[in-house]
Design a protein around this nucleic acid. Sequence first.
DNA 1: ACGTACACCTA
DNA 2: GTAGGTGTACGTC
Length: 994
Amino acid sequence: MKKGDHLFLVDGSGFIFRAFHALPPLTRKSDGLPVGAVSGFCNMLWKLLIDARDTSVGVTPTHFAVIFDYSARTFRKEIYDAYKANRQAPPEELVPQFGLIREATRAFNLPCIETEGFEADDIIATYARQAEAAGADVTIVSSDKDLMQLVTSMVHMYDSMKDKQIGIPDVVEKWGVPPEKMIDLQAMVGDSVDNVPGIPGIGPKTAAQLLEEFGDLDQLLARAGEIKQVKRRENIVANADLARLSRRLVSLRTDVPLDLDLGALVLEPQDGPKLIAFLKAMEFTTLTRRVATACDCNADEIEPAALKIEWGEAARGPDLDAGAPAPADTGEAAAEAPANPPKTPVARGTGAATPAELAGSRIEAFGRSSLDVSRYVTIRDVEVLDDWIRAARETGLVGFDTETNSLDPMQAELVGFSLAIADNTENPSGLDVRAAYVPLIHKTGVGDLLGGGMAENQIPTREALARLKPLLEDPSVLKVAQNLKFDYLVMKRHGITVESYDDTMLMSYVLEAGKASHGMDSLSERWLNHKPIAFKDVAGSGKAGVTFDYVGIDKATAYAAEDADVTLRLWMVLKPQLAAAGLTTVYERLERPLVSVLALMEERGITIDRQILSRLSGELAQKAAAFEDEIYQLAGERFTIGSPKQLGDILFGKMGLPGGAKTKTGQWSTSASVLEDLAATGHELPRKIVDWRQLTKLKSTYTDALPGYVHPETRRVHTSYSLASTTTGRLSSSEPNLQNIPVRTAEGRKIRTAFISTPGHKLVSADYSQIELRVLAHVADIPQLRQAFSDGIDIHAMTASEMFGVPVEGMPGEVRRRAKAINFGIIYGISAFGLANQLGIERSEASDYIKKYFERFPGIRDYMESTKNFARENGYVETIFGRRAHYPEIKSSNPSVRAFNERASINAPIQGSAADIIRRAMVRMEPALGNAGLSARMLLQVHDELIFEVEDEEIERTLPVIISTMEHAAMPAISMKVPLRVDARAASNWDEAH
DNA sequence: ACGTACACCTA
DNA sequence: GTAGGTGTACGTC
């Protein structure tokens, strides 16, 4: 084992315990063998392997072992006879499962490890320390506090049930002491379950406080006389020996003799048939199906394994006859991860051996297939609708699309919906798709003044939705949509929360960000060789355009059913490509879960105070008008100040001022920087233009426009986030864009005061400090940067000090400003031209700075070079989580196009990794708040900042949850080499909270 | 009515 | 120097 390797150590006994208690006790195989714990264990292990496997970078385990307790008789029992004496015998139905679980582990092709006389924890400790010494990272899959003493910067724990990483800060947060003091803390506190005595009257809080004061247990025992509280002092003095004994009991041994050395723990590929044979023997149908899909095996052709453990009639528990026994599959389903679509019927029967082959054959097959428009049907009564829904349930897969009368999902009314089903019983390659449209509120007539009544023979919306709801909310049926967030919101507003879904737009985004667009029409042309009917061909456009409820039902069916059909076909083409490219984890962890999170945020919206905006607008109008008068005076005529062309004529023509830069159309530029330069040479007019522009910009874009976005019913502003419109993985916000609300100038900041909390609440703003520079320090592994961030030093001052040899103390502001510009320049893929522009210095001087910078930080130059080379070789770059950003023009023969692509590909891993981190934080935020019993509502995201609305009384408890979730968001996939820092504040408006 | 250029707001 | 979105002017259809 070596540096860069990653060892996963699964606490098998802990897994069994949790699996047993998480599942209904009566889960049995058809012959009565209880298998609930086995089922839970297999599901948890499978999920862990899948979650960890698919990414090409980061957390991928290279070594893996599942560790079990051997027997109750351990060395601790020798030390202390009462150890674990309280422990009851395992429940009767668990006994036969221990052996099965070991068999299961071997069926997964994983080392199954136990050593006589030692507990699983000791084996884990031994392996963890050995791996750490070899320079490898370790993840201990357990949430047991007894293992927390092992946590270091290299060794983390991972609670797979809660998907929660436990690192040093989490231990400190939970117990009040760092991991290395956990032994002393446990020794003092004791453990009633394991019968570790501890010191009476000392709990975790007191123990942490005493350790803080005295350093460690030995010091405490030696100086116990100093403790003021009489009772506490007496307890400690009287029980000093018990505390020392307890310490021996809770200290994990790191010298357990091991049969297998680290090298033998190398993670082997799954043996599909072997695993399936075991799972079939256990009658775990859902997991069997899922594994078969992942391995592309045909489970029907595999014989169930012969089990070593049989369960005879005589051994049946009496409870089995008492009530109806639950089928084995029911218990298994209860342990499934909620968002995991269990059925992928069309994935089988193709004979493809690898994901890449499957992807290739799908592309080929679907590129040739044609859509059978004649089979599209209009559903006009519930009986037929029920038939379709039943078919969807049987297939476990359905294409879904909504039709509405507005592009704004917060305003849209549901006009109809369509379903597409893959009929794979006749055609195993899954090409046979049938689709239907269900019109709900189509009108007759053209919607003019005469109105036009409701068209006939439509299912009442209420009735149709009552039928549809169980399907959309059924976790065992996978719903496939294009840009699902829209449909998700529309359905949510109709009381339906879609569960188990895939989004073809997001799949395309993960596969091809930067290379191609992800709209349905272009996806269809690209992958299906089919041009779908254009919306404007059914609904018209412009003045002649109508909303979809005024489209005739026949035309609507052709359009809408086709959308569902195309979506389902796209899914079949794109899904295997994710696996083939190793991008499933990116899609499942960074994209798909954000659909519901963002939908929720958009639905919540944020309150704006229109009075404040209206007052500001008036002030801005007055000030702008005053400038206009002065501008006309100075220009000697009236003109359209907002027209760069007219302004250029005045400045550079009539007034004869020297022109600076040119725009790309050859006009003289009138940009702020040009005008600033002119102002500096003593001209009055340019300065006034700049000021006028600022005022009118604020007025038109913000104070005048924002009130128009207030929702008539909610009275709040609901932005729309786009998940798939940037190359790097950032979100974007529009209608209105709430990611560019002014903050830089005092005048602009006033607009932020109009974003307010509802009564009894505050807005909380939490933002990452310097996240992109921290990511840079991590990916380029720059010692000085890592050190500075670890020490909490001003990073720009440090840079300046390194470069110019100026001490940080008393550094002139200008020196720091230059270093700051350079740091930003680095992130943007620095060029001498750009840096010179930014700093207002000569290109040659900027060039010298860059040279100097690279001398001081050679690792940055290396990073940039290797990133560019990677981009040239692969056509894309990757974030630390494996997200790809494509730059197909990086080899352009045009030097400026090429240089631009090089800078962008240097920037993308940095910007994109930061974007991935906050995405992970957002995905975890809702459950984190929920688990903490907090009602805080996440409202907005602004790239490195999250804004929440929090009840006044909950603010104090909420801030640490938000901060911790954000700071630990990279883990466990990535252990950052620099800490992430988050600042958070609460106030009644966004300006003060920020 | 729609598209492009320019300018300018954010991280 | 990176990544976005929007308003205005002004061109084309």
